[in-house]
Each structure stands twice: as C-alpha cells, then as structure tokens.
Amino acid sequence: MSTPEAEVSTQASEGSNLQISDEVVIKIRDMHKWYGAFHVLKNVNLEVNRGERIVICGPSGSGKSTLIRCINRLEEHQQGDIIVDNVELTNDLKNIDAIRREVGMVFQHFNLFPHLTVMENCALAPIWVKQVPRKEAEETAMKYLERVKIPEQADKFPGQLSGGQQQRVAIARSLCMNPRIMLFDEPTSALDPEMIKEVLDVMIELAKEGMTMLCVTHEMGFAKTVANRVIFMDGGEIIEENDPHEFFDNPQHERTKLFLSQILAH
C-alpha cells in the first residue's frame, strides 16, 4: 500500500495552473484576539483572492485554527477588521448569518449530527437556512454525495460510517450550502492513515474546480499539490508566507526551518 503522501505528490505542481481572480474575498486587517489575558492572535494581516488555495501550518497552539474560526465568527476577534465577501464581521447578527451562508467549514472531528442520516445531515441547512424545498435540497445533497463518492451511504447514520467516509459526508454537507469559500480545520488529523487519501482526493478535486480554500493541515503533500500559498504561523503571528515551492525549498525564517525540519524529518 502506498502512502497518501506519495500518491498526492505525484500530482505536484497542478496547483499553479489554476486560475486566481483579482477579487479579494477575505480581508483581515490588524486583527488581534485574546482568550482572557492570553494574546492568541497578534496583528494578523491577510488578503485572500477568489480561487486561492491557502494552506496554513504551524506548531500546535500557534493560533492557526483560531484564525480560520474567526473568519466565520466561531471565535470573536477583539481588534482589527475582518471583511468577508464585502461584509464586515461585527456583532451584527445579520452580517454573521450572511457570512456563514457563504462560508463552509469542515472540522477535525467531522461534527456530523449523529441523530440524523447522512442525507438529513446534508439537506438540513439548505432547507432551514435557505428555505430550499425538501425535494430540491435532497437532490442537491445526492449530487454532492455522488461527488464525494458515497451516494450509497445516504440513508445510514454517521455512526455507521468510517472516519474517512464521515469526513467526506461533512465536506458534502458544507458544499450543499453552495459556499463561495471553504474553511478546513485539520480535516485529516483525526483519520486513520489509510483514510487520509480519500479525503484529500475530494479536497484536491474541489480545488481544481476553483473553490477558494483555506486549509489548516499538516499534509505537506497536499500543500505542494494544490496550494498557491502557504502560511506559517507561530505564537499567534503570521511568520512567513510564500508559494509552496519557495516555502518548502527555501524557507526564510529560522522558526519555519525548524518546523519544517521537524515535520519532514520522519
């Protein structure tokens, strides 16, 4: 059995061929966040254009998950601006709802709803948030379940599926809302090794279709294949950002070098 890393890296450099538009979809300016007295994000500045595939990496506790969770307001920032799709994130619930309709999120632990079938998981938000008729929502759900290659599991409960299948359902569930931006929070970290590839394949597919993606991951093969930019965070700051080849072959910062040597050593 070949490792997922090896499989993925054979497709390397495909990422650079994908179109990126000039339109800025996420703009983060001088953003700070504290957990109580702990300064978890420091002066973050980031602009994301439509169609970009950004991989965010860094040691644990560096604030990378917190950063992408701020983008759909699962975490609140205390200073600076976050503008998503021309809507500024404030305490205004209307803006938060508007942004959440446009931004899909995939979690490390899938967070599927265990009391609902796969189909119900997928059709729920379109029905209740977008008032799509049930039949239409289920057709859309089926379409995306086919895209992640598990239409036959539609009537099962999440607890009856493997980890990789669950994560693919979670991706399909997000796609059902037809988001313009997808956030991935360590989507493969909770998976058994043999299931990582099936999830990465779905994500690569998605990237090829031009989805704007921000992905917190340690899958460096994935970063090399599809990312057009890699961001390295440490201690709540963006330390370095570069295109994947420069990033891996020629890291600038000492901390980046150390991090890369640690994760690539084995």
Binding site: M105, L124, S174
Partner: peptide
Amino acid sequence: IPKGQQEAADSMGLKYWQ
C-alpha cells in the same frame, strides 16, 4: 453534547432556535 455540534450548526448559519 460535544461543543462541535453547536459549532457545526453555527457554521452552517442555523439560528439559535433552529
């Protein structure tokens, strides 16, 4: 109920009562 359930619901834009 794990916190992730509420987060998943929030991230899909469901309102509190929903």
